[in-house]
Design a protein around this nucleic acid. Structure first.
Length: 550
RNA sequence: GCGCCCAUAGCUCAAUCGGAUAGAGCGGCAGCCUUCUAAGCUGCAGGUUACAGGUUCGAUUCCUGUUGGGCGUGCCA
């Protein structure tokens, strides 16, 4: 039973009997209770086309709706011409049964069932551990991947791995220098080297294993040791956050398979590239249409080496060819320009880029006592993601990173995040869950036969707090749908806050377990179970745990 | 200079393809624990949605301009 569908069908047939072939009808959940449970602006939309007074037109629509019926108790016209539907409490009790029986599946959608999605994110180069600033990117991607899964996609999580180029040479030189300094403290550290403390650690490992035998070795072993250490570090941090990528796509494979040259040839063939100053340029100024004053970009340097755009384009072509229904890229705002170039190039070669969705998120500032701080525990003055996770905990970090809309700058209050108190917004939600778990534990003792009770009298749930809790629980699937289509997991958090608020109010006003009123207790316990389900499922999407005790 | 993004309560942020009286948390003030978790609940105060125009039944949302901030603007990735 889907009430929205029910109402849409009624509206469509009402409009039809007025001679209007309705296109899309938009239903909303009004903010104000007095405006009913569901409202539509359809009358205003079509009145305009028909050149009629919206309120009068709404009235003629209502006359054709044939309400009240089993689930719709009342329909009113309000404001400039909204049609407001009031839904019977009985409907929500049917919903409650559904929530209980769906359990961990409640909120999972079929919208994208049978479709595949690829999401690529993190993709940090193996030149050092992840730092705190990476956190937003990582947590956001994790939550979006979860959202896609909840909407029905079969999701492939992918990491674009780049262990080539200047950066790796620099890493090798850095490791070598630290290694050699063990024996020759005055040995010069390269000016463009990685100053991080972890380089010492890698060097020490090499010394432990090989002594001084590597002094005359070439870069290879240092590069390998550095890469291995860094990549292991990255994966360990990701593991702490519960992230596993199914695919690590190695950039170098694009060279090995000849795809870079292939792509380059295609550009030439289509006259989308030209040579100038010894380099090859892509005509991005012509290819990019939605940005003013776009300039041409170099894709092959005068040295003969492709710039990063080349493999990026070949990579996207590869992903397109793999046939996903959706390809998601997550980028920080510092990559805001380059993705346009890459997509424009790919599109220029005739590929359909409409399936590629690029999520751009703004940067993070870590704040303490109201001031932006460079948090560092080490000599290299870097606040690593592991340090942040140690400081505030994995759940809190994940929550804070996903809490806000991605396209606005995020202020991460480390002080607040560290606080294990009611001030911390994570605990408000988790506390509601733990509270429910406590009650359910008590119920097992108070009513040993509760678990086996088949017939629960839901009609006993009649208080204002019970009804509004039921109503909020019933819209969870809609919230998942809207969060997913907008790629905005923070919408889930906003919603869960409403759930927790309604639950706490219910809890505060009504006692659940009461030996004298067994029937009522059972009904309320079901309401608790449903609340727990919604909270738990929501936590799963945003990627935090659901504690049973706090 | 140019491009992209942003500007909402003292602070951090929401606001359903443009909807009805712009909402939460924190901070401030005032209350509620002999009953299932007080990490909770209740009440009060706090706004010209940066500014100026425009579009329309209706604008925080769309358009133009101005101001202020973030990020780009490498033959780095």
């Amino acid at each position: 039973m889907d009430i929205k569908r029910h109402i849409i069908i009624k509206l469509e047939s009402a409009l039809k009997s007025l001679g209007i072939d309705a296109g899309q009808i938009i239903l909303e959940r009004p903010k104000d209770e007095s405006h009913g449970d569901i409202s539509t602006n359809a009358a205003m939309m079509y009145a305009k086309k028909e050149n009629k007074n919206p309120r009068e037109f709404a009235q003629s629509v209502i006359e054709k709706l044939f309400v009240p019926d089993e689930y719709v108790t009342k329909v009113t016209i309000a404001g400039p011409g909204f049609i407001n539907f009031f839904i019977s409490d009985n409907y929500y009790k049917v919903k409650l049964k559904e929530i209980i029986s769906s359990s961990f599946l409640y909120g999972r959608l079929e919208t994208n069932k049978g479709k595949t999605a690829n999401i690529e994110w993190v993709s940090a180069n193996p030149t050092g551990p992840l730092h705190a600033g990476h956190g937003r990117h990582i947590s956001l991607g994790k939550a979006i991947a979860n959202l896609l899964e909840w909407s029905g996609y079969k999701v492939t999580r992918e990491y674009y791995y780049n262990n080539a180029g200047q950066q790796m040479e620099s890493l090798a030189k850095s490791v070598y220098a630290r290694y050699r300094q063990i024996f020759e403290p005055d040995y010069q550290f390269p000016s463009d080297g990685y100053a991080g403390e972890y380089i010492y650690e890698i060097a020490n490992l090499l010394e432990k294993e090989h002594g001084d035998k590597l002094i005359d070795s070439d870069n290879t072993i240092f590069k390998q040791a550095g890469e291995n250490w860094c990549f292991k570090s990255i994966r360990q941090t990701l593991h702490r956050l519960g992230i596993t990528h199914e695919v690590f796509f190695n950039e170098s494979s694009l060279y090995d398979s000849g795809k870079i040259n292939e792509t380059l040839d295609e550009f030439k063939k289509r006259s989308l590239s030209y040579e100038k100053d010894g380099a090859v340029w892509l005509k991005t100024s012509e290819l990019i249409k939605d940005k003013k004053d776009a300039e041409d970009k170099v894709i092959v340097k005068a040295t003969g080496e492709p710039t990063y755009r080349m493999p990026d384009m070949a990579y996207h072509i590869d992903k397109i060819k793999r046939g996903y229904n959706l390809i998601v890229d997550v980028f920080g705002s510092d990559h805001g320009d380059t993705y346009r170039e890459v997509l424009a190039g790919v599109q220029g070669l005739g590929y359909d880029t409409s399936k590629i969705k690029v999520i751009i998120h703004q940067m993070v500032t870590f704040v303490q006592e109201g001031k932006p701080v460079k948090m560092s525990k080490r000599s290299d003055n870097v606040y690593y993601l592991d340090d942040l996770l140690d400081d505030v905990g994995v759940d809190v970090a994940q929550f804070f990173f996903v809490m806000r809309s991605a396209n606005t700058h995020l202020e991460f209050d480390v002080e607040l995040a560290r606080e294990q108190s009611e001030k911390n917004p994570v605990f408000y939600l988790q506390y509601a869950h733990a509270r429910i778990c406590g009650i359910l534990r008590n119920a097992n003792e108070a009513f040993p036969d509760y678990k086996n009770s088949a017939n629960v009298n839901y009609s006993l749930l009649n208080n204002a707090e019970e009804i509004s809790l039921l109503k909020i629980l019933s819209v969870f699937p809609d919230v998942v749908a809207s969060a997913c289509s907008a790629y905005e997991p923070h919408k889930i958090i906003t919603y869960l806050n409403e759930v927790a608020e309604n639950y706490h109010k219910f809890y505060h006003n009504h006692r659940v377990i009461n030996a004298d009123e067994k029937e009522l207790s059972y009904a309320r316990l079901k309401l608790c179970e449903a609340s727990k389900t919604v909270l738990k499922n929501g936590f799963d999407i945003i990627g935090i745990s659901a504690p049973e005790r706090m």
